[in-house]
Structures are given as C-alpha cells and as structure tokens.
Design a protein around this nucleic acid. Structure first.
Length: 429
RNA sequence: CGGGGUGUAGCGCAGCCUGGUAGCGCGCCUGGUUUGGGACCAGGAUGUCGGGGGUUCAAAUCCUCUCACCCCGACCA
C-alpha cells in the first residue's frame, strides 16, 4: 500500500481527551476516531489490526473445536424475560422499542440467543459436546466510558458458549478454552495471567480472568512466578487451581501461599474471562437433552469471552515506547514500512518502486511511504504507527546499493543490500 | 449517578477577570529552495467563539438555561 493512497491521519500533538498511552497512540496514529462517548470509527489501519486479532482468535477457537456463528446485535426483550435477566440487567442495557411497540435491546452479550438456538436443535446427548462462538459488536451503556476503545460502550467481543452433558465434560471444555487462550495471547506477544476470579453464586470456583501484564494496567495483580513460563503444554485445570494469582482486592499477604521470592506483582488489563456456570441458563431457557437413560437433563454450560477491540489497546499498552507503537508482527497493520527519503530523486524513487513491487510479489505487507514530505516527518510517522520493520532507501542507496533495515522494537539498524533485505523479509517472522 | 473540569480554525492553545476590528503555534493550499530524524523563504485560505435566551449602543468576554465532551469515584470484556 502506498502512503499517498492510504489513509492514516497522524497527529503530531496529542488530543487532550486522551489520557492513557494506547488511546493517545491510537488517535495519533490515525487508527480510530471518536464519534461520541465510548463509540468509535475504526479507520483503515485500526481496522486492519482489529481484523488480524480477530483472525488469530478465530483460528484458535476453531482449533479448539468450536463453531463460529453470527448472532443478531438487536435482540428481543422476550428472550431475556425468559432467562430472567431482562429486569436484572440495569441501565447498561440499551433498550429500544420497534415500530410495533415491541421491546428490543442491543445485545450486551449473547447467552440467551445462543442457548435458544441450542435448545431448538440439539435434543440428544449424542450431539454433545458443542461449542459455539461469535465475534461481534456488543453494546453496554457504561456509566463512564474511558480509555479510548479499552472501555468503550460499543466493543467487539468474542464469546464462546460450551454445552456439555456432564460437569466433567464442561470442565474439558473449560480446559480447552484455557489452552486456546494461552495460545491466542501468546501469538500476540502478550503475557497473560489467568487470575482466579470471583463468580456468582452458581459459578463455583471455575472462573478465570486473563490479565495482560502492562505497566499501565488498571488493576494490580499478584501471582506466582511460575505463570511466566506457562504454556499450552503445561497448562491444565488442575495445575491452574494450584497456582496462585489474585487481583489487588483479593490478595492477602497473610494467607498468600506463594513464598515471597516466588511472588510477582504487576499491573494487569483484563482481556478475557472464562467461566463455567452449569445450568444457570439451560434450565430457564429449556436447553435440555435426552440422556442415555432416556431422561431429560439440562446441559452444562460455560462461557468464554475475549475483548477483541480491547486487545488492540492492551497490545499497545504492552508494546510501545516514547516514539509510538511497536506492533508484534502477528497483528501489525503492515509488516514493513518502506521509506523513500527523496521522492524527487529519480534514481532513488525507481529503486523504491522496484523494491516495492518485489515486496508485493513476495506477499509481504508493505506500506510504501511515497509521499513528498520532510524525512523527519516520515521517520516520525513510521515510528509512530509502529510497523515492525523499516526499510530506508535514500539517494545514498543509489550509489551504494545498500539500504537501511531498522527493527522498530530494538532500534537496531543495519546496512544491507536490496537483494538481501528482500530475502530477509521473506524469511523472518 | 455523585464530585471536578473543558468547549474559540483540522489539532494544541491564548484572549474572558476589566465588554469595543478574533489571535498564536502546528497542520492545510500556491510558488520556490531543500532532502539520512517532525526543513526554509514568500504568499494564501479557514471560525454560526458548543447552542438558545437575556443585559448592553456594543457580548468570545457579563447573566441565564441547555447540550456535548473529559477527569476522579461506584460498575464493567
């Protein structure tokens, strides 16, 4: 993509409404634009990142034997009256009335809809287990939206709902999601700590919040250092239940089982939440199956959320410096930024065009800054938007045949030939 | 919802106290000179001063109502 064609309105100055770094950088790099409190337009580069994150989540959900569905954003109140939540859910639920005076709502979550779907079609234990997920926009009319898209009112969320015959089956689903989550966040270069969370009266102790470690996190968490080496191969439900991790308000130094030298403390951003809730919705919504003994049994359910749009902010919180964003390659809007330092230098521009075409042919996502502007501004823009690699080509390159390859994260710069830089981009990452 | 604050050009702000031609920086447009870290010179465009009502000869400025947004708290992916 050429910068001259693309649209990423960068800002030199920070809009005064933005307080936290991810919000500032998203506005400054032209990823989003606020429409009204807690509601944003996603501009091209922001949307690109959002879609890449969603795609990683999708792949890991699929791998965990889950089926994607798309449910309506507008739901009928009647369904919520069935589950009993219509009158419990407070003002966070945006309610509206259609032309026939039917009460409707903009879905804050989808347990009701999915459970209804399930109960319509799944009748036998032989059809279990089933896991459905959706990635879609939800709306919660937060009292006070803040931190940009980190706590907006409209947000993109992945929710997975599992249906199992038995508690044991439900635990297996739970575990499958734990693994999927660890994998998902790892692919985004995030350290995620599954912190045991308080649940409602029905949830029991099976609930974990995934906290991303970032200096600017909203809550302080305390955890066993063993979490830092957690991976999909070692994570099990049993193991997790023996590992200690607690949020600020639940942490008690007196009763903490972790020896002081093993205890870590950091700030966290909640990006995911998994929990098992048994038959809380299956009973009122009539999600029963016929068991092997011919009896009707309510299914065991769990739900597993990931704040997709929030992750965009969380990743920035975890990956930035004073110059701007530092995207992990897996979610970067482009892998490479190609900087033409002098558009008016014919030979230099030819060299850039040639390299750009080769990068395109090699299917390397490239943002080619072909704009006619000061080099300082180009460098600043490129650092700000945070593409993992910068290939810098100037008039000097015409005589030396060398360009400069810069790693955005480390700041390391090397002189390298144009042929080699192409190869390097093909094989790294 | 309680407390605090802000609305003046695309962005960041000054002007308001003490009423009298609406300003600065950045950005934008034109021309030229530049070109390895937010360039320089010259010229130019851009405002219902958030909105309504009032006071006054005269309101960005004073009074009043209202709307929007931001921050702190309670709540949340």
């Amino acid at each position: 993509m050429r910068s001259s064609v693309y649209f990423y309105p960068t800002l030199k100055e920070t809009p005064q409404e933005a307080q936290i770094v991810s919000h500032r950088l998203m506005l400054r790099s032209g990823m989003i634009s606020q429409v009204t409190a807690g509601i944003y337009t996603w501009l091209p580069s922001g949307l690109k990142v959002l879609n890449k994150i969603a795609q990683i989540i999708r792949q890991e959900q699929d791998r965990a034997q889950s089926l994607e569905v798309l449910m309506p954003t507008i739901q009928p109140a009647a369904l919520w009256e069935k589950s009993g939540r219509y009158h419990i859910y407070g003002k966070e639920m945006l309610r509206m009335v259609d032309r026939h005076e039917r009460e409707m709502l903009y879905g804050p979550t989808a347990e009701e809809v999915i459970t209804d779907i399930f109960s319509r079609f799944v009748k036998s234990y032989k059809d279990l287990p089933k896991r459905f997920y959706n990635i879609q926009w939800k709306f919660r009319d937060e009292i006070r939206p803040r931190f940009g898209i980190m706590r907006g009112r409209e947000f993109l969320m992945k929710d997975n709902y599992s249906f199992d015959l038995t508690v044991e089956g439900a635990k297996a689903s739970y575990q499958a999601m734990l693994e999927a989550y660890v994998r998902t966040f790892a692919r985004m270069d995030l350290t995620a700590i599954p912190v045991r969370a308080a649940t409602g009266p029905i949830g029991g102790d099976l609930s974990h919040e995934f906290q991303i470690l970032a200096e600017t996190g909203e809550s302080e968490i305390f955890y066993d250092a063993a979490y830092e080496t957690l991976d999909v191969n070692t994570i099990t439900l049993e193991r997790l239940q023996t590992l200690y991790a607690a949020a600020d308000e639940l942490h008690d130094p007196q009763t903490c089982p972790v020896p002081a030298d093993q205890l870590r403390t950091a700030r966290g951003i909640e990006v995911g939440h998994v929990f098992y809730f048994g038959t809380k919705y299956s009973i009122p919504l009539g999600a029963y199956v016929t068991g092997p003994d011919g009896k009707q049994v309510p299914v065991e359910m769990g739900s597993y959320g990931i704040g997709v749009s929030r992750l965009v902010g969380a990743i920035i919180e975890a990956h930035h410096d004073d110059k701007g964003i530092i995207w992990p390659e897996s979610v970067a809007p482009f892998k490479v930024g190609l900087l033409n330092l002098n558009i008016k230098d014919k030979a230099c521009t030819e060299m850039c065009e040639d390299l750009y075409q080769k990068l395109l042919q090699a299917k390397i996502e490239t943002l080619y800054d072909d704009r006619d502007m000061g080099i300082g501004a180009k460098f600043a823009d490129m650092d700000l938007i945070g593409l993992p690699w910068q290939i810098i080509v100037g008039p000097r390159s015409v005589t030396t045949g060398q360009c400069e390859l810069k790693n955005r994260r480390t700041g390391e710069k090397i002189e390298i030939s144009l042929e080699d830089v192409l190869k390097r981009m093909c094989y790294c990452g």
